[in-house]
Design a protein around this nucleic acid. Sequence first.
DNA 1: CTGAATCCCTTAAGATACTG
DNA 2: CAGTATCTTAAGGGATTCAG
Lengths: 121, 121
Amino acid sequence: MTPSLRGDLFDPACPTRRLLDRIGTKWTSMAVKVLAEADPREVRFAELQRRMPGVSKKMLSVTLRSLTNDGLVSRRVEPTVPPKVHYRLTDLGRSLEVPLAALRNWAEEHMAEIDRANAAD
Amino acid sequence: MTPSLRGDLFDPACPTRRLLDRIGTKWTSMAVKVLAEADPREVRFAELQRRMPGVSKKMLSVTLRSLTNDGLVSRRVEPTVPPKVHYRLTDLGRSLEVPLAALRNWAEEHMAEIDRANAAD
DNA sequence: CTGAATCCCTTAAGATACTG
DNA sequence: CAGTATCTTAAGGGATTCAG
């Protein structure tokens, strides 16, 4: 592993910074969560949109393409008419769910404190 | 705890979404990490800037103010001329370091896979 | 030394409309 | 059904300048 791939946030190519750039976008973490909790694990586009209230088709499409390019989500097309497209988390995507869930737990436990701090000013 | 504060990412006020909005900004996680690893724990503005290569004074200022308002960082001013301003993580801030470190570990282990997925296309 | 204020540029993301 | 194309707006972030 080269030094630039190690843990210094000082590097502009720092892996943590780059990871946060991805999961920090508005719909990514929600999509990962919804897919992680899906049973069966494959979910179609329209069903995903239904489970992610507020997301537009465009943003869902952008989000899923990005996740697919990153190898976190796999995409399977049934060449029917009309087409059916199924999405599911890859193993890599499921492994990301672990630290992401930790972050969710922290958020649920502590965001109220943050709100209080802001209210206090 | 009201339903809107629970774990549904569907709520626009979802705590996870709001947490990610914060730590997803460019310099926040770096600042938390640098402060978490600081010894002694208090660090002055200019020293922080030195330990965060690339950050401008403006963005460091904005980042620290936001962290301070959130109660994650405390700020102590020595009313000398010129003034000295010291920053340190609060207990809340240190608790956030735990899931954040988990995310860093994941990034260091797996970002290379993501890069490979993108290269493969 | 610390950090607020201003200007400007780039990008995320919403709305809308259209296609295989 | 599952997207793409285009336009517009809002926010992040950099450079520079000013002030306590």
